[in-house]
Structure formats: structure tokens, C-alpha cells
Nucleic acid binder design. Structure first.
Length: 784
DNA sequence: GCGATCAGCT
DNA sequence: CACAGCTGATCGC
């Protein structure tokens, strides 16, 4: 290939390429491609299909050549290429040339089906302009930018106007500032949607820059490696855990800065060759040529649910390879410990394992930075609990993280435009080719309701005020939002804010945003530090031990009505309608299609059972986290009693038992948090609460701990204390932040006592007694 | 026999 | 649910 730049961009026709590929391999031609009648496969998650196209990104599992032969692979990780095999023939795979090499050389995909594309150049594919830009993930990883021409009826007769919709699909990526300067990216500012790698889209995931982590590794090797200098038989063996593709930069930098070759297996060498690193002189297959050896990713220990070092394996390796000390590095996506501004180390005898946070996914701030730059109309998460589900709470929560950064005005405008045009704005998604039939008059009401979630009632109201006659605006009763939505708003806040945020803070946020949850969340994250500082003195009170009471049925707050569907999520109306059936509200952890083969297999493993239990716990954990401390039980005679989720009630769990029962876990916990013996009683307490689940305990610890949580008694909520704390908080905030008298009044009037639940279902489980919902009692104590 | 899925493991 | 991935066994067609 010469470097001559084509005067015209490549212009590709996927169907033709596919036909050619099939015939070159003497395979039978496929039946009618791109038949306009064929809908997209129902199983295809909408985060993998580019709207208004048949472009499928990282979605080979559900490939159906009768719908599409145009496939895009963002990078060579198996969770993205599942569905590909040496027998692949369902379509053309567009990807970077590095990924193309890997597909051909490692996965043995027939070459004719692979179409490598250049980086940072426009290419025309089936009429759409496509750009590949580096994703700063693993080698060969790219983001895809799609500029899709859309015909739409201007409404004035036969002429049809062409405009473009723009989509950014990040694949997996780690943001860096240079991305803002990528050729072509500027055209995608204001894109219709960004399909975003939300792996670490939560402020609790913090990790340093890759450079800091590399510096650390290099530093350790330089310091300990001197023991190997000038000796015949090497002393210290360094092991670096990696997986097949990714994190090569660590190895390259070790080699460059520590002036060593890196030993790899033959298998890894084959991959490195495909990456173009095979001839670099950095790597060797000769064990004796290097004291830095690459090992498989779980060799040094299991990383989930918390790091369990495997010193036995290390010892084996040490003996086999003739060293007297082994220092291992586990580059992991993130660690809890980083919050303490250190890199964690596990040691035993002559073994050391350094946990090095090294992420190839964007952290929270980076994600926000990118979204802020792109100002898309929508953010569509591609990673997370149920991205495949259209009603995903997760997607809602994600959306909220980017409130204020997305182009909300554009969304609202299009929404209103859609009304005037009869609903064919850019928000429509061609999920089914029959989507037009979704727009039957009855359902427009539904649209209105859904929209209120992405632009709050209040905001929308404002908008409508300016664009609609005054009277019409007046017909929207502003009262209705206040009362009934407060509980829901608080619950939504709970779902997307860190756990240490107090009820009072949430109410404060809501009042500051006029009840707009999106804005409240956005405001929160803009001032997270200050909020956290507010909590400092009373951490123990606002901290949360929110796992469920055992034996409580798992359902309470799920009585979310249909309106939790977010218009900004590409919901087709027919789908949103389905959701309104009560049967669809409850969600089961396992997809219905899952095998049940485990049921009668008697050899079911213990670990299996445990993980099942954990998953149930964690579900309840989710469900009960709203107003976490207490669950209200309305007994048969409708008498309300407060049941505190306090383990002091638990007659069976004396600390001495727990101390024995969770001895290992307690030790592990203390080790992980680098704590001393003074932490032991706290650790016992917390682990008892989490039934020995270290991960949950760590979660609690790192979310709530501010360094002064040794006193277990402080950790249990006393309702009187809560009230007085809230009162104090409001007072002091009111003072510090100079909340005006008017604002105080707003707090009073906005936060009123909601109706008690009406249906029987929710009668059984109410989160708080009615008076707890009422801030007026607390605000009342503010005094004159 | 084949692809999809799962258990076990690295 | 949570950084990836391989391999061999088994299921179901």
C-alpha cells in the first residue's frame, strides 16, 4: 500500500462486497440482502444498531444477513466479537487494520469478509460517511463516527430534503484530550447520540492516569531489579499479569525504561506479531533472556470479587524458573485502595504482588469531559447491567450523569417539533420497520409523559410556556408534580447518587433544582466534594448498611409506573406500551432464555450456591437501598411500625460469633483497607452485616468511611438523630449558602407529605412513615 | 455433526 | 451486574 491519499473517499457497497466474498469462497449467494421489509433481529440490543442504518457494531451474536451484512468491530476483545468464528459468512466486518490482522491470524476469519479501514479518514459505506478514530483502548481499538443521510418529508408535498444524523460509537475507550483534535471529530459535536462505554461511569471508580501506574511499576522494578545486576543466577523474577490483547503499553514501557526484554509465551508472541510488535526486539520467547515474564491474567490470583493472591502458584513458578524472590504486578481496572492514594501490595514470604490500577476504560471525569465536548442529544450506554433492556434503569441513571452536558435544548425542541410534525423527529428509532404505526393518537399522551422524565415537568413546562399560548400552559396543573413526585424523585436520586448522600442533601438538591432530578444530579456532581464534606462530621449517621432484612420479600418500591421510560433512550412506543403491564415491572436477574440445566444436576457446586445467594442479596440490596435504614412494615391491622434495619435486633448474631465466623474475611478486610487492629471491631460489625461479603463491606467502607468510623455504635441509625441531623444540616446549609427566606419557604411548600400508597401491593412496604417524608416537621424547627 | 452454552480454569 | 479469555463437556437441534 502506498501512502498516496485518495482524492475521493472510498465508496463501498457492502452488499456487493459480501456477494464477492461469498463467491470467492464458493459459498452460495445469500437471498435478498437489505430487504426493506425485514426488521432488525429482536434480540439485537439497540446500543449495537446505528439508527436509520443497518450498521451493527460489535453485534455478531445476533447477526442476520437478511437484515444486515454491514458489521463493525470496534476492537479485538471476545465480549465484543462473540459470534464470530472461522465459519463466519454473514457479512462484511469493518474494523481497523490491526483488528483485521487479529481476526484473520488469531480467529481465522476468512479474509474476504474482513475489510480494514484507515484511521482518521472519511469512508463512504452504503451512503453513510464513516470515520474510524483511535479509542485509546487496546491495540487496534477504534471509535466509529457515522454521518447518516436521512430523507424526510418536509411536509410540503413531494420534495424530500436530505439532512444528516450523526452518531458516535465509542466502542470501549479511554478518553484523552487529544481526541478533541481528531480529524473530523468537530463535525460530530452536537451528534444525535453518543453510544458510550459506561464501564466506569460512576464516581466511585477512581483511578490514576496510565502514566502514574507505569511510573510505579517501573519504579518497583528499578528498585528491586538491582539485585539481579551482575549475578549469574538471577535473584528476583518479575511477573506481569496481562490478558491476550491490552495493556501492552506497560510492557513496552518496562522494556524501554528498565532496559530489559520481556518474556512472553509463544501464543502471546503470535498476538504481538499480529499487532506489529513482534519484531520490535522488546519481546522474547527465551525465558533466560529476561527477568520480566508475562503471565496469564489470573495466574497471580483471582481478582473477583476481591483480590485473592495465589502465592502457591507463584512459588511453583519461582522454583521452575530458578529464582529466589518473585514480584508480581496485577494491572487491574481499578482498586479500592487507590482512594487511599497508594498502590496496594500483598506480601508473603519472598513474594510480593502489586495491584496496579491501570484502566483502558474512561473514568467518570473523562466520560463527562467527552460528553461535555460532544454535546450530544443523547447518551446511550453500551455497557452495564441491562443495556439490552429498553427500560433499563441503568440507562436512566447514566443519562442523569450527563445532565447539563448533553444538548437538552435540542432534545426538547425536537420533541416539540415532533408534535407539530406528527412525530417523525430525530428521536424516532427505526427499531421496527413498522415503527410508523406506533404513532397512533392514543399514544401521544404517553409520549408526553415519557418526555417528562428527560426534561423535567418543570423544565418542559417552561419550554411550553414560551412556545404555547399562555392558557394552554395554565392548564397544566403544577400542583400535581409537587406531591406525588417527591418520593419518586428521591428514589431516583438514591439510584444515581453515592450512598453517603443524606436524605437532607437530596431534598436540598431537589429544592434547588425546582424538583428537577436531572438538574439535581448534575448539580450534585458539580459540587460533590462540598457535599461530601458536609457529611464528614456525621458520617456514621448517614452511612448506609442497606442490605435487606432477611426473609423480606423482594418487591417493595418497584411500583414504578410506565413513566420511568425515558424518551431519550430510543424507546419505540410499542415497546413502552408493553412495559405498562404490571407483569413486566419485576425483573429477574436471569434472562428467561437461560438454561435451567443446573436444577437437576446434583453436582451443583458450593460456589455456585453462594453466588446465587449473593446475587439475591445484591438484588435486595438494590431494592432496599431507598431510605436504606428503615423499612416500614404495615401490619395486617394497618398499624404502622418502624422496623429498624439494625443488627442489634438480631438475637442470633452476637459479635463473638461473628468474630469467629468471619475471621478470615475480617483479616482480609483489614488487609485490603490497610487498616490496623483498631479497625477490627468495625470490620467484624460490617462483615456481620454483609454476611461475610467482603466486597459489599468494602463498598460500604469506601463509600462511607471518612477515617473516623471506628465506633460501631455510630453506625446505626437512630431516627431521632436523623431528624436532628437533618435539622442541623438544613440550618447550617441555609446559613452558609445563604439560602434566602424565600428558598426556605420553597422547601416548606415543595416538600409535603405524599399520599399514602393506594394499592395493596405497596401498602405492605413503605419506605418511611409519612411524617418522615415531610420536611415540614424538620424545616419547622428552623425557627424564625 | 454443528453451534450455543456452561463449568472450570488460567 | 463488576477489567478477558480459553477449553472441553454437554445440550439441543
Amino acid at each position: 500500500m502506498s501512502a498516496s491519499e485518495p482524492p475521493q473517499p472510498l465508496n463501498l457497497n457492502t452488499a456487493a462486497l459480501h456477494r464477492a466474498a461469498l463467491s470467492s469462497l464458493s459459498l452460495p449467494p445469500q437471498p435478498p440482502p437489505n430487504n426493506p421489509i425485514v426488521p432488525s433481529p429482536a434480540s439485537l440490543p439497540h446500543s449495537k444498531l446505528i439508527p436509520k442504518t443497518r450498521f451493527i457494531v460489535d453485534g455478531f451474536k445476533h447477526a442476520d444477513p437478511s437484515f444486515s451484512v454491514s458489521y463493525f468491530l470496534s476492537h479485538f476483545h471476545s465480549d465484543h466479537y462473540t459470534g464470530l468464528s472461522p465459519q463466519w459468512s454473514k457479512g462484511i466486518i469493518y474494523c481497523s487494520s490491526i483488528t483485521a490482522n487479529l481476526l484473520h491470524q488469531i480467529l481465522k476469519i476468512p479474509q474476504p469478509f474482513i475489510y480494514p479501514l484507515p484511521l482518521s479518514q472519511p469512508v463512504l459505506i452504503d451512503g453513510s460517511e464513516v470515520w474510524l478514530v483511535d479509542a485509546n483502548h487496546c491495540p487496534g481499538a477504534v471509535q466509529f463516527l457515522f454521518k447518516v443521510p436521512v430523507d424526510y418529508d418536509s411536509g410540503a408535498g413531494t420534495s424530500s430534503v436530505v439532512r444528516f444524523e450523526k452518531y458516535v460509537h465509542t466502542g470501549d475507550f479511554r478518553y484523552r484530550d487529544e481526541m478533541k483534535n481528531e480529524t473530523g471529530i468537530s463535525e460530530f459535536v452536537g451528534a444525535d447520540a453518543v453510544f458510550l462505554d459506561t464501564t466506569y461511569c460512576n464516581p466511585k471508580f477512581v483511578f490514576p492516569s496510565q502514566e502514574e501506574s507505569i511510573d510505579y511499576v517501573v519504579g518497583v522494578i528499578e528498585k528491586l531489579g538491582v539485585q539481579n545486576e551482575g549475578v549469574i543466577v538471577k535473584n528476583v523474577l518479575f511477573l506481569v499479569a496481562t490478558y491476550v490483547i491490552g495493556k501492552e503499553r506497560i510492557l513496552m514501557e518496562i522494556s524501554r525504561r528498565c532496559k530489559r526484554k520481556i518474556h512472553v509465551s509463544g501464543r502471546k508472541m503470535a498476538v504481538l506479531h499480529a499487532l506489529g510488535l513482534g519484531e520490535s526486539g522488546v519481546f522474547t520467547e527465551d525465558e533466560l533472556e529476561s527477568d520480566v515474564h508475562v503471565v496469564g491474567w489470573n495466574v497471580l490470583g483471582e481478582t473477583w470479587p476481591y483480590f485473592k493472591p495465589n502465592f502457591v502458584k507463584m512459588k511453583e513458578i519461582m522454583s521452575e524458573r530458578g529464582y529466589s524472590k518473585v514480584v508480581g504486578f496485577v494491572p487491574t481496572g481499578w482498586t479500592y485502595e487507590i482512594k487511599r492514594n497508594k498502590f496496594a501490595v500483598r506480601t508473603k514470604d519472598s513474594f510480593e504482588i502489586h495491584l496496579v490500577p491501570y484502566s483502558e476504560h474512561s473514568n467518570y471525569d473523562e466520560l463527562r469531559e467527552y460528553v461535555k465536548f460532544l454535546k450530544p442529544k443523547r447518551v446511550i450506554p453500551t455497557v452495564g447491567a441491562d443495556v439490552e433492556k429498553i427500560d433499563s434503569k441503568h440507562a436512566n441513571a447514566m443519562q442523569k450523569h450527563f445532565a447539563g452536558l448533553v444538548d437538552e435544548m435540542a432534545i426538547k425542541q425536537e420533541f416539540l417539533m415532533g408534535f407539530r410534525r406528527g412525530g417523525t423527529g430525530a428521536l424516532d428509532v427505526e427499531k421496527h420497520s413498522s415503527f410508523v404505526s406506533d404513532y397512533i393518537p392514543d399514544q401521544e399522551v404517553e409520549v408526553t409523559y415519557s418526555a417528562s422524565n428527560c426534561c423535567s415537568d418543570v423544565e418542559l413546562e417552561t419550554d411550553m410556556k414560551s412556545s404555547l399560548p399562555q392558557q394552554e400552559h395554565a392548564s397544566r396543573d403544577s400542583e400535581d408534580m409537587k406531591e406525588n413526585d417527591l418520593e419518586k424523585s428521591v428514589q431516583e436520586l438514591r439510584d444515581c447518587l453515592p450512598k453517603w448522600v443524606t436524605l437532607c442533601q437530596m431534598l436540598e438538591l431537589l429544592s434547588g433544582s425546582g424538583g428537577n432530578v436531572v438538574e439535581a444530579v448534575s448539580n450534585f456532581y458539580e459540587h460533590e466534594t462540598e457535599f461530601h464534606e458536609q457529611v464528614l462530621p456525621s458520617t456514621s449517621i448517614s452511612c448506609t448498611f442497606q442490605e435487606s432484612l432477611d426473609n423480606q420479600p423482594a418487591l417493595p418500591f418497584e411500583s414504578q409506573p410506565v413513566k420511568s421510560i425515558n424518551l431519550a433512550e430510543n424507546v419505540s412506543l410499542s415497546q413502552s406500551l408493553k412495559l405498562s403491564s404490571p407483569g413486566n415491572i419485576k425483573k429477574s436477574g436471569n434472562s428467561p432464555g437461560k438454561r435451567k440445566r443446573n436444577f437437576d444436576s446434583k453436582g451443583t457446586k458450593k460456589a455456585r450456591t453462594d453466588s446465587t445467594r449473593n446475587s439475591i442479596d445484591s438484588k435486595q440490596y438494590q431494592i432496599t437501598k431507598f431510605f436504606n435504614k428503615k423499612m416500614l412494615v404495615v401490619s395486617e391491622d394497618s398499624k404502622v411500625e418502624v422496623k429498624c434495619n439494625n443488627f442489634n435486633d438480631d438475637q442470633s448474631g452476637f459479635p463473638s460469633d461473628a468474630t469467629k465466623l468471619y475471621k478470615e474475611e475480617v483479616n482480609q478486610f483489614i488487609k485490603i483497607v490497610n487498616g490496623g487492629e483498631s479497625l477490627r471491631s468495625y470490620a467484624v460489625t460490617i462483615l456481620e452485616k454483609t454476611k461475610g461479603d467482603i466486597n459489599m463491606a468494602l463498598d460500604t467502607y469506601y463509600n462511607d468511611n471518612t477515617g473516623t468510623t471506628n465506633d460501631t455504635n455510630n453506625n446505626f441509625l437512630d431516627s431521632n438523630k436523623l431528624e436532628s441531623e437533618c435539622t442541623i444540616r438544613i440550618c447550617s446549609v441555609g446559613k452558609d449558602a445563604e439560602i434566602s427566606e424565600r428558598n426556605k419557604l420553597e422547601i416548606k411548600s415543595d416538600i409535603s407529605c405524599p399520599d399514602l400508597p393506594k394499592d395493596e401491593l405497596s401498602l405492605n412496604y413503605v419506605s418511611l412513615p409519612p411524617e418522615r417524608y415531610s420536611l415540614s416537621s424538620m424545616v419547622g424547627q428552623l425557627g424564625p
